[in-house]
Computed example of a mutant assay.
Amino acid sequence: MRIALLGILSLALQLIAASAFAQSSTASFPKEVDQTQGRIKFEAPMKDRQIVDGDTIWMGIHEIRLYGIETVEPKQDCRRGRENVDCHSLTIEELKKHISDPSFRCDGFRVKDGKPWKSYGRFVALCYTDAGEVNLAMIESGWALAEKKDKDSI
């Protein structure tokens, strides 16, 4: 009974998070982010795209943090019923579907002085394929939670 309730609660939280993120698809950025300046375009051949974890990737020489999402960390406990599940690997498999799309690209943000917006040295960006926004797709698939605002920004 407890496990079923946890599953229902988890699903409800994912739906709420996805709804909140979808409503703010231009997202609520910290005041330091300048929406008037052009975004930084990140593109790389498929061979130069690598996954660090569920919300961080490398595109060529650039490390990119997917804006507005939080994913399961390695070694973080994840259970399906009474069974332990490697959710981190499953999250990476989901992200791999997106970054292996030939149309995959990311748009990084700038702060008011024109410099790139970075979080722990990583460029903060929204990523896309021709099918749509990858950040949102990760939430809608249940493999990421929406963050209202990047806590470690700037």
Rank of each mutant, 00 (worst) to 15 (best):
K118P: 02
M138N: 08
K115Y: 14
S119L: 13
G142Y: 00
E43V: 11
K31S: 10
K151H: 15
A146N: 01
I57S: 07
I51K: 05
A146G: 05
G68S: 08
D107G: 11
G121T: 02
M1A: 15
R49D: 08
M138L: 12
K112D: 05
W117A: 10
Q23T: 13
K41I: 04
E32G: 07
W58C: 14
A12R: 12
I3S: 09
T129V: 00
A125Y: 02
N135Q: 02
E94T: 13
K47P: 03
K31A: 07
L13C: 03
K47H: 06
L15E: 13
A20V: 13
I154A: 15
E70V: 14
D34R: 10
L5V: 12
F104V: 01
E94H: 09
K115S: 15
G38T: 04
N135A: 02
E43C: 12
S28P: 14
I154W: 12
S141I: 06
R65N: 07
Q50R: 13
N135C: 00
N135L: 01
W58G: 11
K47S: 12
G121S: 01
V124N: 03
R2Q: 15
L66T: 00
S141C: 02
G54T: 04
K115E: 15
I40G: 09
K41T: 07
L145F: 10
A131L: 04
L9N: 07
E83P: 04
K31L: 08
A125C: 06
S100C: 07
P30K: 03
K112W: 05
G68E: 09
Y120I: 00
E147T: 14
E83G: 09
A17Q: 03
S10C: 10
K115A: 14
S19I: 05
